[in-house]
Simulated scan of single mutants.
Amino acid sequence: MKSVYYLLRGCGLAGVLLAGAATAGTTCNKQPIQPQSVQAIGRDMIVNGVPTSVVGMQYAGTPNDVSKAFREFWTSEDVPAKGQSSPSGMLLSALDDHCLYVLSIPPQPEGASTRGLMSVIKLGNDEVRHRIPDSAVPLPEGGKVVSDIESRDPGQTGRTWLLDMPGDARWNAQKYRSILATQGWTRIGRQPDYQSGVAQSTQGTAFVMQHGGDSVDASFSDRNGRTFAVINATRSR
């Protein structure tokens, strides 16, 4: 589950709220470009409160060929589409009523095929219900939630929070372990501390705790005098 967050973040998509070529809802199911192959990443997700899905795709042709096909499809649908290029790649988007379609193409060598993330976000005012509710997992005190991603895989749901908070990572981790313990969570193993560089100084810590059918994998790392925490909760069903 945590890998979904890191993939989104690594592609620069977490803060933009991208979604997948599979449906983010029952009506957001158009296919702007027919792919050669598909890799499911997160077909049923909630990203910062928005129904979202993400699918990796490979297309025939160069990035420019794919960009042209994307725009031509939405022109035929009478939907405006736009794109932008930067050193981090190409980003194409189209807003069709309440469905936002986004295609992210990272930098890659010119060839007979192009890799990208095809995305859909379902916009609207419908209430979104998490399968792992806020009340199920206490979060570290004093932390600001930077992102909140829930992914529903077959047989398991995962929800991952990224938090920014003041103070030392090891101290924040210790406080969070205590909060979980007082609420009945038990530790199920010690994870290795994060080390940095030649000096091998400790930069953060991680641990796993469990409560009934829920488990939490918590990671705390130092960032310029502050702490970044990744709290990944999973629930089997």
Rank of each mutant, 00 (worst) to 15 (best):
L103T: 05
Y101D: 09
A112F: 08
G124A: 09
S119C: 14
K122A: 08
H98W: 10
T114I: 00
Y101E: 06
P133R: 10
R115V: 13
L95C: 03
G142Y: 07
A136R: 12
S104Y: 00
V137M: 00
H130L: 15
Y101A: 12
S104W: 06
L117F: 12
Y101W: 08
K122P: 03
L117E: 04
H130C: 14
K122W: 07
V120S: 07
N125S: 15
P133F: 02
L123D: 02
G111I: 05
L117A: 07
G124T: 00
S119E: 11
M118A: 10
P107K: 01
L103V: 01
E110C: 12
S119F: 10
S113C: 03
I105Y: 07
L139V: 10
P106R: 07
D134H: 11
E127W: 02
L103I: 03
P107V: 04
V120H: 09
D134K: 05
E127D: 10
L139Y: 03
L117H: 13
I105H: 11
P109Q: 09
D134F: 07
V128K: 03
D134V: 10
D96E: 08
L95E: 15
L103S: 05
E127N: 12
P106F: 06
I121C: 10
L95V: 11
D126R: 14
E127H: 09
R131K: 13
T114P: 01
L139R: 09
P138I: 01
G142P: 12
G116S: 02
S135Q: 14
V137Y: 02
I105L: 08
C99S: 15
S135W: 13
D134M: 06
L139S: 00
P140H: 12
S104F: 01
P107M: 05
I121F: 11
G116E: 09
V120F: 06
D97E: 06
G111E: 02
R115F: 15
L117R: 06
S104C: 02
P109F: 06
